[in-house]
Design a binder for these strands. Structure first.
Lengths: 357, 357
DNA sequence: TGAGAGTATGTAAGCGCTTACAATTGACGT
DNA sequence: ACGTCAATTGTAAGCGCTTACATACTCTCA
């Protein structure tokens, strides 16, 4: 009935008895073609099972209605959720999303930027500002608009949407301090090449300074993303300072790991040790006790990133910067510091609940 | 210095003083070009910041070293993890992965299949067998190899890699029955268009039949993916039958939701009610009590899917079918049925533990 | 009835790249 | 010194599509 390989515009044109231009118009600007012709053409398209070849289309038209996104990892629920919203918003406007994950590796990310651009992405969504300036130069030269998400900083002037990681974490840390905690541990994500992780740590330091405390008194452990990593990080922290009364974690996943390990070690949370997270993913409300954390409006961020990026792609503007508000969610994992412990410099024998109040 | 828009092969050729063919060869088959020329060319490439245009390359060469994957949702940790492994394996072999998520919508999935193919994907990874045959016809016509993952069934003959959802769930349900449970509830994902969800439910029914029980005695609730959905589903189930002693969930996320709701309602797990999951994602070990669930070798599946698909793409074979083993993880959320309840047809007042043994 | 306006369609020139084939070059053997 | 052969490079024909421009109609209105 038909040739073995994929039908082309030409095949359709021949089958419908029109020119390729007409077929193309039927597909792209149907109103510029008369009803009867359109029907013939559509029938041929249908019959042959024709699908336009994107490569060719990209080359000829310079527009693909495709947006690329590169995220550090797919395993992070928060990106997943925001991205889902991003994709939905794109779809509504007729764009398709292509996603790549860089596994937190800058070299992989660069490769993927090029790959996505070469494939004709009309615009790119990237996470965080931190990356080789050469990448921005390249994007600039290729005239591909970029939206930076998941972070907002006064210091950066690229189009972006996100929240102030530093200020949000500072606010949370301030609450921790208010509850009397002084021996504080921090479990942070890897800060190298990750402005969000770095700013969160900075936020904690700021909070300490504002309270007249020395940021160097913090016990910090950096680790990779993952529940297990969080658990191990808690071990390391407690090894360095067994008297910690609070552990501030860079995200909910690390916090969940720390929490699990605390339970495994028989440490009462928040009685003996308070633990906080960041992001407010569903996990935060599943664990026991529920995590005190910073709520981030993922879906709103995803949606707004989409509309902002599309506006840039369609030349409506040069890109805007939007700051989103976060909110501290007070839940069970954060409690007042166990005051007496510090004074009594508990010995190993002092395992039970002391009677002093 | 140079034109404002992206440099082309032609620009490079001119800058290096060679023909476009030579430049192309330098990039694709460096050994067919003499060292000195190659250096000149590479310098020009470097100087101009040249990147090949994929669209053009696809058109001319018919190979892209790109694999596409379409998953139902990015919010599901299990896909995320398997996909991460898939991507890593692809990278090692020089392929790039492009991901789309269909939000469990067949129409969206179809659109994305076409989109990915049109963009020159050399092969596709799809989840589950269930989909419009027209899609398979299309893929066939376009000669794009497809690997089906996350499911394995004797009945399907397409290249695939996965585990037997039905048998795995049957094994788990059998354990539940062994512990004496007879009033069993099921929280399933949406089964329409989702062979995995459907087969899991079938597995439960099989287990009942094998024990001489009537599958119709199951109280089943279907719901969307998500922790909150799991929680609500438990409410519905208990409304239909307050005397359930076990709830088998289609995946860990639903189970986590059910577990949370049970806690909220003051139901003791597993004392009063046992709950099981499926997938064994990290979440399963975080919740209290930890979930009894079916362990799925995500990473292995991802890796093998990659090598299998690449073999097909490179015409090494027509595609193989691989079945992976699963393993039941017995943990705290599953316990023996509270035997006395059934006999005593507990009244509302019968809330405490009765003394009879 | 014919000029003019407007609409529908066709023609053909690329878009940037790969690759079959042709041309050039140089080394080697006789 | 000349023919042969292999290695290197160049030439040019597409790949499938869009779109500016040209052409062919149809319909008005004077």
């Amino acid at each position: 009935m038909q040739s073995r390989s994929a039908p082309t515009l030409d095949d359709v044109a021949r089958a419908a008895g029109v020119s390729t231009a007409t077929v193309s118009r039927c597909l792209n600007t149907p109103d510029r073609v008369v009803e009867s012709t359109r029907q013939k053409v559509m029938q041929a398209v249908e019959a042959l099972g024709y699908t336009p070849n994107f490569g060719a289309r990209v080359m000829a038209a310079k527009r693909t209605f495709t947006i690329g996104a590169i995220i550090p990892t797919m395993e992070n629920a928060i990106f997943a959720r925001g991205l889902q919203a991003f994709q939905e918003a794109l779809r509504e406007r007729g764009y398709t999303l292509l996603v790549s994950s860089s596994a937190y590796r800058p070299d992989v990310e660069e490769e993927q930027v090029r790959s996505l651009v070469a494939r004709g992405a009309d615009g790119l969504l990237l996470i965080g500002h931190d990356r080789d300036p050469a990448i921005y130069d390249y994007l600039n030269q290729q005239k591909v608009p970029v939206m930076i998400a998941w972070t907002f900083s006064e210091a950066e002037h690229r189009p972006s949407i996100g929240f102030d990681n530093r200020a949000s974490m500072e606010a949370l840390a301030t609450e921790v301090l208010k509850l009397g905690h002084r021996r504080i541990g921090v479990i942070s994500g890897i800060t190298k090449g990750n402005d969000r992780a770095r700013q969160r740590v900075e936020g904690i330091c700021n909070a300490l300074e504002n309270s007249g405390l020395d940021p160097d008194s913090l016990t910090i452990s950096e680790t990779t993303y993952g529940i297990e990593s969080g658990a191990e990080a808690l071990d390391k922290l407690l090894e360095k300072d067994p008297h910690l009364t609070a552990v501030i974690c860079g995200n909910d996943v690390l916090a969940a790991g720390a929490l699990r390990r605390a339970r495994e070690r028989g440490i009462d949370v928040p009685g003996q040790l308070s633990i906080t997270g960041f992001d407010d993913i569903e996990l935060a409300r599943i664990v026991v006790p529920a995590l005190t954390t910073v709520h981030v409006p993922h879906r709103e961020m995803g949606r707004k990133a989409a509309s902002g990026l599309i506006d840039m792609v369609e030349n409506k503007n040069a890109g805007t910067r939007t700051e989103l508000a976060t909110e501290i969610m007070m839940r069970g994992s954060l409690g007042p510091a166990p005051k007496l412990r510090d004074q009594a410099d508990r010995s190993d024998a002092d395992a039970g609940n002391s009677a002093e109040r």
